[in-house]
Design a binder for these strands. Structure first.
Length: 594
DNA sequence: TACTCGAGTGTTTTT
DNA sequence: CACTCGAGTA
């Protein structure tokens, strides 16, 4: 315990050691949210207040669940070795909302539980439903989005739209026929189960300690779930930052943070306001954007407070080239702030992984990606497409699922070539597949799908499986491989602001700071402010906001001028730089290999 | 059933 | 611009 408290500041300590009853932790950017969450779990175990398997911690992403698990286990292991905790093999359940819901449904409904499908299959089924109804608009993507949007509410919010009502009805009939649930159903069905008193009572007995991460991002359904998961005076901890609520477009609302205080009884509120990440000026700029400047003033522990640089450019290519050149100089050993100003730079040696370029919409990353490749600077983008959207991989995955005995009927139906063919093909060979390992399964699948195993895509897949021979879910493996933005890799990161949430980088370029881009035209202006807030608080040392005069977006010329949000920041926190007339000649710095 | 081509359309994203 | 989707053709 003593070692623990030495790692925590007083407010963190208060949140970690809070004993019983509802707890709301308002945690600004870089205030040690994950630390508090994992320490709290560890602390509850250590004091004996909770048995490990009485705890459920819920996150939004697998990544977050993994991170927290790792920290908790690291914490407990250290404690274990010093003999403080007597650990049974029981462990706290740390899982995503959806992951927990699926398990809960399986456990409660047994064989009556259906099988989950991903978004792509949901689109297909939406389309099937729309065709049945002869709706005029049958775009699967649009339909699925509208259906999913409605299903963020319980009961699903059907508005006045009759088409949507009918569509959802038929869509649900189809899902029922196939024995499937979409992602939204997992949460909705879990919520439905909680309407049965005996089921809810059992849950309350099983999990008297519930913790929720990124609480500001909960949807109405998730909020209802949370309310069902604890008594009004129960041991429920929620942690989040209302100023970083940027998922309104999928039904989340920062309001739930306020509701929590009245929906539960005697809520203890702890505000984490000591920021370990950002310099004070970045924090002041960020908070100045938020309307109800909630009495909280974030305080940075950093002594250096560089100002925020504002850089104007003519067009996206200028902007991108400047970013690329500047990065090159940074990793060359010159400090960022002193560039252009003639001062000799500090000697901080930067690595490419210290740098992120972030932006409001993914397309804005393209010119930067081009400029970086031209300069031979390695970079990684977070926005890799879902690998399972690719045809071959999807077929491979379907056969894999069939051989693993999951969702067989539906996958047979969807495989190219048709059900009968595949029934025949798979029939003879199925026995004994339980024992085959990943690589064997894959080569078998490639064989019966008649694919060329030497294609780079399949070779990469084979490599991924080889590193993970006992993988059960190919989907999880593929998606992890694909969108894992590897922080340790020696490369610049290109990310949307959304994708950057939760991350930090010493040096951040926030590009495309123009009105119409951020704030995005026709978007909730308050949420746009929070987005900018998130963007500004990603940097731990230096940040530069840039804007251009003209930008071609979706084939249309935009000239919104510098973002109105920049004008809303107290100007003494900014250094505005003049546009440079001189266009630096393109020098090919590094020959590309091919 | 499988592929090509042109019209249409645009934020952000997890499960 | 760049991509997706679906109509149309083989």
């Amino acid at each position: 315990m003593t070692e623990w408290s030495s790692n925590l500041n007083p407010t963190q300590f208060k949140a970690v050691t809070h004993r019983t009853g509802p707890l709301l932790v308002a945690a600004g950017p870089g205030t040690g949210k994950t630390r508090v969450l994992s320490y709290r779990i560890g602390h509850l175990i250590k004091t004996g207040d909770a048995k490990p398997d009485q705890m459920l911690a819920m996150t939004f992403t697998n990544q977050a669940a993994k991170e927290i698990s790792e920290r908790v286990f690291r914490l407990l292991n250290t404690e274990l070795s010093s003999g403080c905790v007597n650990n049974g093999q029981k462990v706290p359940k740390i899982s995503t909302f959806h992951g927990w819901a699926l398990e809960f449904l399986k456990q409660t409904l047994q064989e009556a539980a259906r099988l989950p499908i991903d978004e792509k299959d949901a689109k297909d089924i939406c389309q099937e439903a729309a065709k049945k109804l002869r709706l005029s608009n049958t775009k699967p993507k649009v339909l699925q989005e509208r259906v999913s949007r409605a299903k963020q509410y319980y009961p699903p919010r059907l508005t006045e739209d009759e088409d949507l009502t009918a569509l959802i009805h038929v869509y649900h009939e189809l899902l029922k026929k196939y024995g499937l649930w979409d992602y939204d159903d997992l949460l909705l069905e879990a919520l439905r189960l909680f309407e049965h008193d005996e089921i809810r009572e059992k849950f309350l007995r099983d999990f008297p300690f519930v913790l929720v991460d990124e609480f500001q991002d909960v949807s109405p359904v998730q909020y209802s779930l949370i309310k069902s998961m604890a008594k009004k005076n129960g041991n429920i901890t929620v942690i989040g930052d209302p100023n970083q609520a940027i998922y309104g477009f999928r039904g989340a609302s920062p309001e739930f943070m306020h509701y929590f205080k009245t929906d539960f009884e005697d809520v203890e509120t702890v505000v984490l306001d000591t920021v370990y990440r950002c310099p004070q000026i970045f924090l002041d700029a960020a908070t100045s954007l938020i309307k109800d400047r909630s009495a909280v003033r974030l305080k940075s522990v950093k002594d250096k407070t560089p100002k925020i640089r504002i850089k104007p450019f003519e067009d996206p290519v200028d902007e991108a080239n400047w970013v690329a050149r500047t990065i090159e100089q940074i990793v060359g050993g010159l400090s960022f702030v002193s560039l252009d100003s003639g001062t000799a730079g500090g000697n901080t040696l930067r690595s490419l992984s210290d740098v992120a370029v972030i932006f409001r919409a993914k397309v804005l990353g393209n010119p930067v990606a081009q400029a970086l490749s031209k300069q031979g600077i390695p970079f990684q983008r977070a926005d890799t497409p879902d690998p399972l959207a690719q045809k071959e991989l999807r077929s491979i995955w379907r056969v894999w699922e069939i051989l693993k005995g999951r969702n067989i009927q539906y996958h047979l139906l969807k495989l190219p070539g048709g059900k009968d063919l595949w029934n025949r093909k798979l029939f003879d060979l199925k026995p004994g597949f339980q024992d085959k390992d990943g690589p064997q399964l894959l080569s078998y699948i490639i064989d019966i799908l008649d694919l060329d195993p030497n294609r780079p895509l399949l070779k990469a897949l084979a490599r991924a499986i080889k590193g993970n021979p006992h993988v059960n879910s190919l989907a999880v493996l593929l998606r992890n491989e694909a969108d894992m933005l590897d922080i340790n890799i020696e490369a610049v990161s290109l990310l949307s602001i959304h994708a950057a949430k939760g991350l930090e980088f010493p040096i951040v370029f926030l590009i495309g700071c123009e009105s119409g881009i951020i704030p995005w035209k026709e978007a909730d202006p308050e949420e746009e402010r929070r987005l900018f807030y998130v963007g500004l608080t990603r940097a731990s040392e230096e940040i530069c906001l840039s804007h251009v005069k003209h930008r071609r977006l979706f084939g249309q010329m935009m000239h919104g001028g510098p973002s109105t949000l920049i004008a809303d920041i107290p100007q003494n926190l900014l250094i505005k730089e003049k546009a440079k007339k001189t266009r630096v000649p393109q020098r090919p710095r590094q020959q590309r290999l091919f």
